[in-house]
Design a binder for these strands. Sequence first.
RNA 1: CGGGGCGUGGUGCAGGGGUAGCACGCCACUUUUGGGAAGUGGAGGUCGCAGGUUCGAAUCCUGCCGCCCCGACCA
Length: 596
Amino acid sequence: MRVSQLFGTTLRSAAEGELISHQLLLRAGFVQQLAAGIFSYLPLGQRSLEKIRTILREEIDAIGGQELSMPVVHPGELWQRSGRWQKVDQTLVRFQDRRGRDMALAMTHEEVVADLTAAQVSSYRDLPRIVYQIQTKFRDEPRSRGGLIRTREFLMKDSYSLDRDYQGLQSAYRRHFRAYFRIAARAGLPVAAVLSDVGMMGGGMAHEFMYLSEVGEDTLIFCPSCGYAANQEVAESRAEAAEVAPMVAVEEVPTPGSTTVAEVAAVLGVEADRIAKTVAYTAEMARGQTGTLVLAVVPGNVEVNLAKLRNVTGAIELRVATEAEIAAAGGVAGYMSPVGLDKVAVFADDRLSRKRNLVAGANRAGWHLRNFNLDRDCPTATVVPLASVVSGEACVNCGHSLELRRGIEFGNIFQLGTEYSQSMGATFTDESGHSQQVVMGSYGIGLGRMLACAAEEHHDERGLALPISLAPYQVALVSVGADREVVDLAERTYTELRGLGLEVLWDDRDVSPGVKFADADLRGMPLRVTISPRSIKAGGAELKRRRGDPFTVQADQAAASAASQVRLMEEEMSSWVDQQMLPVEDLIKNTLGECP
RNA sequence: CGGGGCGUGGUGCAGGGGUAGCACGCCACUUUUGGGAAGUGGAGGUCGCAGGUUCGAAUCCUGCCGCCCCGACCA
């Protein structure tokens, strides 16, 4: 491709966006935004995306995946059958066709896969199978973020495993686990697998693959000693020993004006963790239904974990209750506790049941209670882990002190089980002639996000520095000036490079050399071949890696040398991948157990 | 949805009741050609939208819309 013919230009500056990946992808002319969270991919971005597609196809094919393609528009009836029509909030875009039928834009494809399976699979001989597609999803996120990190319309590789039993599911899960590490490594991304919430997918175990980054939106809990890794949404810590002090009678104490944990702690002279903090939420149990009040009680030094609360309440949406809602239930904002509020569902963090004689609200303005004991004073509470794990708490497995990191979710894997098979009637006949439900797994990777992560990981002050596996072109050919000799050699080298099967972007524009170099760097071209009066005088052509030192090769060897440089970079990449894969088998054994 | 910020040529910005400006980019010609060249000439803007105030609105007022950032959600 000649730059003079390329659709799309580089920009000197970009105002939009905080994230470096967002800015660079805009400036390098990879993407252009159409609306909030909706992007076009320009030819350069499209080529990088195509490389990602190829990696995904190769790796999912390698574990037995078969590519297919499913619709973007689904009949609402399908989602009604699975129950998600009611469960999922506005993230699922609903509309009606001309006949007034409910329709939905695909945000994921479990329903459709299960529906396909119902028709295509009928015998145990038809299992196991893995099917996948690389296709557009639309999720009307409340807020898109960080350029390509979170968009509303995005490309996703989604695969689905179909098995006759849970042992088969384990095997498919494991193969995806391994493949995801390879996929990330081939994109130059170091990732960690963490236990995760199943969210709207339902089902059993789930892992997220996280690219560790300070700009990540997720908080992750790691144990440096035993390798425990979990998203904070589901992370657990080891329980402290129960206190043995005798329970003392409850006593009301005045705390006028003290409505926060810090204020109450100061007034009463206790530590924050000696306070039972009560937070009221309004829980929406189904779409369109009026909310009901639920109380979450946690130690004053930690936060209520909404993912955990959502799971334990079964709510589809939770928001902090208003003062009016609290008052309607008999509570007083700032002085709340579950004591005496019989009609409200109460969920309490298990840490509280091991503590004795705490401070709690008195449900009376200006007053708190001393000597609150969860078991005695609120026996109706559901006691579960409800608070977020914080840095320094003890690992559930080994007791070592836990650490917090930030990460961007690049992919996830879910063990779904038979939930969708059941609602769509995906069954098969086993050897004994009995009908069984197909056991499903679901596995996603966002392509645009993967590109954004790669840009976060691989850049410098000059621009992108994508790994050769993702760069839109392997070689930037830069011709300097319009001398006959230069143009002839450039023309010849361009032809030869392409003849050798290399992807070349020739900057043949009539602009100054500085512009060409700056653009090649900004676009992150892995290898630069410069042909100029100076390089010819020095013996031929100059080769330079994106972050390496330049060297000169003979004119008639320019293409061949460039080709061997490219091959070298590809080999380096693949040995890096091998190195990344070294610990993975042990990791699988440790996190998923011995292979079934 | 709550909070904050911003909407002015392609891009980045200034202006703040009376002529719409700057830089980069773009077009033409000339001179240039190793790290975002120089000169000359030129094209390009319903100042987000609607209403209002005013002799007069990009500017003031009201409402709406859009985008970015922070929170609740996700690949």
